[in-house]
Design a binder for these strands. Structure first.
Length: 505
RNA sequence: GCCUCGGUAGUUUAGCCUGGUUAAGAAUGUAGGCCUCUCAAGCCUAAGAUCCCGGGUUCAAAUCCCGGCCGAGGCACCA
């Protein structure tokens, strides 16, 4: 939340992302983002979303969001991140919305099982697929050796019979797509399109909805490559941006398109994203972190909490372009972009950590005018009583310093206590030439602060200190800058303590 | 091990497909200056790349070809 949102300088954001024309210009371009809703979105998996959305927008196309939740076993879908959410997988939508991505259409694959059944039935009829009842190890070995198993030559009628039984768990096995058992990539050799998953043992979070349209409890679930192929075709997707880890999947999927005589969408593969120092692995995030907004994470929620502007995230990702080589996101770059965007609109306040009390020998009271921003005129003021005690950061202890908005003081240590006296020369010129400018907080006029910081900046993830009490009047989510400390975002105020997220310096 | 794909300033990236004024461009970062009661932002300047290495094709190669080195991804009844 910014005080002067109108000050956001648009031209800084509006980099020209010159997408080359990748689609067939005679057709309306349709792109999609197809996440597995098994955890929060992070900076790695929004690349496809951002590229797809921006591209479709630029060329007046359509953008589809599709939840790929067809594995209740190893990639169990997460319906809600917290109790508050009403719609399934709403948390993904919220992250996308924050990034300015509004889908034209939304689909959930677990709503579409009957569609996948219909198409595999057709392939079975035509003999392009078959039910294989080998043990998983046999499948593996035969694959590596390039050997066709006996099930491959079973007649369609018998396959269909088995298929109908498998739907309700009355037969075992997998359904494989006939490709080429001598294909140079073993994983392509008769890849698996459906497998049986026991719904009693592995409960899909949307099972009631699924049962209601299917009329029974399904045992047969399509694998990624099958459902993706069918959906991409049915939804008219003709341009796909995806990570190059999917390169061999594209080969597998092309068999489906060939058997149905469909046009294949154009696929652009890009490299993986890494962010140095921040955790990206979704399974690790889900397993190791209770709080998905932990500042150590590169989740969208964490970035949002810390106070990044969506424009900054967007810029950094889109700047990576669509190279197939791997990309490491430069956090410095992200900070720089965000800093420039928020700088003018963020008020400055004083925050002192590792506080050291200093007694000032100032006999009369003074009115202090505190500037809220060096480039703006607005300020607040307060009265500093005679001989006050103030707090400064331990590492700012110097024999002579400039207390910003107060004056130049000399600090002496007497009997273990620090005493400050006004220097003879109070001029700014002198201070600029010789002294360190430091922030300070009066001991009797302060509010306690805790700042959640990424562990790469501070090991224990929490910096405590005192700030000027004005901050406790700020609205939650306001971004401010603690002078000579960094930008922070107010997250909550509780028990007279202000809790902030650290953004960047 | 097998199969793909990459390798441009400290970092990220443009250019490579369709070789030749771009004596390799940008951002960030770094250094210096101006401005400023922050080590922020803003303005100005500078330094910084043997375009991974070696060979070839060509009048001409970052761009095309071959070999090497390094890196990434894949080799699931996961997406």
């Amino acid at each position: 939340m910014l005080k002067y949102p109108e000050e956001l300088k648009e031209e800084k954001v509006e980099k020209k992302f010159d997408f080359p024309i990748l689609h067939d210009p005679s057709k309306k371009v349709v792109t999609r983002f197809a996440p597995n809703p098994d955890g929060p979105l992070h900076i790695g998996n929004i690349r496809s979303a951002l590229l797809s959305y921006e591209y479709s927008k630029k060329y007046n196309g359509k953008f589809i969001l599709r939840f790929e939740d067809t594995d209740p076993k190893t990639k169990k879908p997460i319906l809600h991140l917290n109790q508050m959410e009403k719609l399934d997988y709403q948390y993904i939508l919220e992250d996308l919305e924050w990034l300015g991505i509004i889908p034209d259409e939304i689909y959930i694959q677990s709503d579409r099982l009957n569609i996948y059944y219909k198409y595999i039935e057709e392939l079975l009829k035509k003999g392009f697929a078959y039910v294989c009842q080998c043990l998983d190890n046999e499948i593996k070995i035969n694959r590596l050796k390039g050997i066709e198993c006996s099930h491959r030559s079973i007649e369609p009628e018998q396959n269909l019979e088995l298929f109908y039984k498998m739907l309700t768990g009355d037969a075992n096995g997998v359904i494989r797509i006939k490709t080429d058992m001598k294909h140079k990539d073993p994983s392509v050799r008769d890849w698996i399109a459906f497998r049986v998953i026991d719904p009693k043992k592995y409960i899909h979070p949307r099972i009631e909805k699924i049962k209601s349209y299917l009329g029974y409890e399904p045992y047969l679930w399509p694998t990624y490559n099958f459902s993706v192929s069918i959906d991409d075709h049915l939804m008219g997707v003709n341009l796909i941006f995806r990570a190059k880890e999917h390169l061999n999947n594209t080969i597998k999927q092309s068999y489906i398109f060939k058997y149905f005589n469909w046009d294949e969408p154009k696929v652009i593969h890009y490299g993986r994203i890494k962010v140095s120092g921040l955790t990206l692995s979704k399974s690790k995030i889900v397993k190791d972190y209770k709080d998905f907004s932990n500042p150590d994470l590169a989740t969208i929620i964490a970035f949002r909490k810390r106070g990044f502007l969506p424009e900054s995230i967007k810029t950094v990702i889109l700047e990576l372009g669509i190279k197939p080589s791997e990309a490491i996101i430069s956090l410095e770059n992200l900070y720089a972009i965000n800093r420039k965007l928020i700088d003018y609109a963020t008020d400055r306040y004083f925050f002192v950590y590792n506080p050291i009390p200093v007694k000032l020998n100032i006999p009369e009271k003074i009115i202090i005018k505190r500037q809220l921003h060096p480039s703006r005129k607005d300020f607040f003021e307060f009265e500093l009583e005679p001989n006050p005690e103030i707090l400064i950061c331990k590492n700012d202890l110097d024999s002579e310093v400039r207390l910003i908005n107060l004056g130049n003081i000399k600090i002496k240590k007497i009997n273990g206590n620090y005493i400050g006296e006004f220097s003879e020369d109070q001029s700014l010129e002198y201070a600029k030439e010789k002294l360190k400018f430091i922030q300070w907080v009066p001991s009797n006029r302060k509010v306690k602060c805790k700042i959640k910081v990424p562990s790469i900046i501070n090991k224990n993830q929490l910096i405590e200190g005192y700030a000027e009490p004005e901050i406790s009047k700020l609205k939650i989510n306001t971004i401010i800058q603690f002078v000579r400390f960094g930008f922070v975002k107010l997250d909550e105020i509780k028990d007279n303590e202000c809790i902030f997220y650290y953004l960047h310096d």
